[in-house]
């Protein structure tokens, strides 16, 4: 069979930054010398509506351009969405789910009914502490990198620097790097 891509599906609410996070991940993956695509699923959503974004990462050029039906990872940006059946669609038990929440993995399992590995991280709280704004992106990416190793942590940090330095200056860079690191260190699972 042709090379399998590593596939990530992001669930968030429009405006929360899941699309930016997926794009950031692809940027970091390309930086790391890999092939990657990132694309959102667009409807006519306005802020707050549930939305999806996708990543594919591989060592070969990415051919498939369709939405991701059987992801390797589902990332949930907002725990108020946990009851939605979309989240677990096509996600088999051998795969994993990462959720931004203060809840425990057990509680998430209860809400989603997902039988595979569940990891949680209070990314919004960490973001509020470090960046002073509730933007969970960089924390989530730190956690995701810890769980999947799709991109080396160092490349992510370097990319954070590149992305934020020009626009926002060194303070914001430092805060976001701390956010990535805390995501990396503080993500926890039940298995």
């Amino acid at each position: 069979m042709p090379e399998k891509y590593f596939e990530i599906r992001w669930h968030g609410r429009a405006g929360q930054g899941a699309k930016s996070a997926s794009q950031f991940l692809t940027e970091a993956a390309v930086e790391a010398g890999k092939y990657s695509t990132a694309f959102p699923e667009y409807g006519a959503e306005r802020s707050g509506a549930p939305m999806k974004a996708f990543n594919r990462i591989a060592d070969v050029p990415i051919r498939i351009r369709s939405g991701i039906e059987n992801p390797d990872v589902v990332v949930v940006f907002d725990d108020t969405m946990l009851g939605l059946p979309d989240l677990t669609a096509g996600l088999t038990e051998d795969k994993l789910m990462l959720v931004n929440t203060v809840m425990s993995p057990e509680e998430v399992r209860e809400k989603t009914g997902f039988k595979g590995k569940i990891y949680t991280i209070p990314a919004t709280d960490i973001a509020l502490e470090e960046i002073k704004r509730g933007i969970p992106n960089t924390v989530m990416i730190g956690a995701l990198v810890k769980l999947t190793h799709v991109v080396p942590l160092e490349v992510v940090k370097e990319k954070v620097k590149k992305t934020f330095e020009k626009k926002f200056g060194p303070e914001v860079v430092e805060a976001n790097i701390r956010a990535v690191e805390r995501g990396y260190q503080e993500v926890k699972g039940d298995a």
Partner: peptide
């Protein structure tokens, strides 16, 4: 539209 225009890749 979207698939290419809004998708990020290298």
């Amino acid at each position: 539209g979207f698939i290419t225009s809004h998708g990020v890749e290298g």
